[in-house]
Design a protein around this nucleic acid. Sequence first.
RNA 1: GUGGCUGUAGCUCAAUGGCAGAGCGCUUGACUGUGGAUCAAGAUGUUGUGGGUUCGACCCCCAUCAGCCACCCCA
Length: 423
Amino acid sequence: MKTMIASVKGARDFYPQEMAARQWLYERLRKVSLRFGYEEYDGPFLEKLDLYAAKSGEELVREQSFCFEDRGGEMITLRPELTPSLARMVAQRQSELIFPLRWWSFGPFWRYEKPQRGRTREFFQWNVDMIGVNSPEADAELLGLAAEFLREVGLKPEQVIIRVNNRRLMDAQFAALEIAPHMRPAVLKLIDRREKMNAAAWDAYALEVGLSGEQLEGLKRLLADGDLWQQSDDLQRVFSVLEAMGLREYFRYDANIIRGLEYYTGTVFEAFDVQESRAVLGGGHYDNLVADVGGEPLAGVGFAMGDVVISLVLKKYGLLPERWPGVADVLVTLFDMERSTAAFAFAMQLRRAGLRVVVYPEIAKLPKQFKFADRVGTRFVAILGPDEVATGKVTLKDLVAHEQETLTQEQAIAFVQSRLGTV
RNA sequence: GUGGCUGUAGCUCAAUGGCAGAGCGCUUGACUGUGGAUCAAGAUGUUGUGGGUUCGACCCCCAUCAGCCACCCCA
């Protein structure tokens, strides 16, 4: 084999089989998005570096995104996330858009990270946002949409659970523990890291952050309290709506859910594969989406889901279809040179009747042509040999039913359509 | 960005420092107008890449690339 140029690190090839899986996923999330009245949109794949520098940490952008200088000397970034583009798009037309708006998107993103299982440098992400509203009911709708997607793809609450918390609730609890406001970001980070450290190391880390022993004990009590949500009016209303939607079983209150992002101000949530505690999707409520890019403050709620982890999870639970429908319904064989024009003509009739048809592209032995049909998964094989052409007929074999009949061409079309259930 | 494990046929993997193999898949035939099954025969490798040690390297050493695992991060 000649030397081959390797693909870019962390990028994936989508062979037809993988493309079918991607399309399958897209169709399902699209279906759920539309069912809830969300409109599809997209931003540009290229953005100015400044757009992200304004919001995210500069270091993150510089070290974890693909940046380059264009010919005019401008720093351009392959979009690492959609939210800043969304904020700009909303701000640009803030006075003419109808709020609350419900938008969703599915497209490629790039992050310059070290690839490993479940993490690639090029990935697809589903983004769903409701903007211009500030209510627990809006949060609940979006949570419900996320859960409905899980249900739609066949994931059960025992497999993937959505853990929910609320930043304001946590803030009130911190105040009750007399944790000073300036320490709260560090405490949030502390909580975020809890599941990744052993208990003793975490305790030490907590004291290092500046918590007193008493505060640490209080914090632990708080994190273990599964009923804490009852002290939050927001969460009571969120869970009540989810209950009414019949999706309550997908959700669990968990004080450990914080989310790294600074702009979340209210309800936050993360869906996890229960077995591996791997994050499948995440999001939350924000008070101010567009002010950083020059608009008037707007509240909203949104979440994002990458295609990589959800695909791994679906595959693990056997929910990704293994076999995709074959590329065609009918293979028309070529018998010999003299009979080939009849084959091409018949194939065209089948296509005009709405069937997916391939003609074997060279004259070959019938066993070879049948084998090809079997392997690519066409259900029917049509033969126009000397006998058929002489009588204006066609022999049609159903490879699934192991039956064949010699019919007129009109009968043959009807035969295939009825067996495929397309009529 | 840090540390670790792994890289051998299209795929999954063997091979004590001494002739590079198996299963699956693939090609052809048994079968000149009929796929899957069976049987037979056949093809396929610069052992990721580049150096080094050695009489001799898939094996040992160094570097590099890629994948995986744990950190980091997770917008």
